[in-house]
């Protein structure tokens, strides 16, 4: 069975935004030649996460961003000297990785589902790690 590790870079453009990385992940899976397996999609940062959610309706992810901002406001009584702790809290809540199932060389996702890199402290250059496992 194959274990193939790769990574790619992206540039986020706002402080908080969800960036659709599905096509990039699809491309890497197709390059790997794995037809049955798993792909770990991993953000190696402490102020950005990974989530799978609705990607067809353009209003959905901005709403998630807004609700998270409401729950964990940027300005709060945080101790951390950089004063950006809301981004760390959101990262812990959303999580830093997702695993997707590969079936017949394709990602098994729902029709409306997309994989989103979740920026909580941008804009900045970011990297995504992938581990593709399978045969």
């Amino acid at each position: 069975m194959k274990f193939q590790q790769s990574e790619f870079r992206l540039q986020t453009s706002r402080r908080s935004e969800f960036v659709d990385i599905t096509s990039k992940v699809r491309e890497k899976i197709s390059e790997s030649g794995v037809s049955q397996g798993l792909c770990l999609v991993y953000s190696p940062h402490t102020s950005s996460g990974m989530t799978i959610n609705q990607g067809v309706e353009p209003d959905v992810t901005p709403e998630i961003v807004e609700q998270l901002n409401k729950c964990f406001p940027w300005e709060d009584q945080y101790h951390h000297h950089e004063g950006n702790c809301a981004c760390h809290v959101k990262t812990t809540i959303i999580g830093t990785s997702e695993k997707v199932i590969i079936k017949d060389g394709k990602i098994l996702l729902g029709d409306c589902e997309r994989i989103f890199f979740s920026e909580f402290n941008g804009p900045r250059p970011r990297v995504v790690f992938l581990e593709i496992i399978g045969e």
Partner: peptide, 9 residues
């Protein structure tokens, strides 16, 4: 302080 803040939030 970061994890302390996460715990607090």
């Amino acid at each position: 302080d970061v994890t302390r803040d996460v715990v607090m939030a």
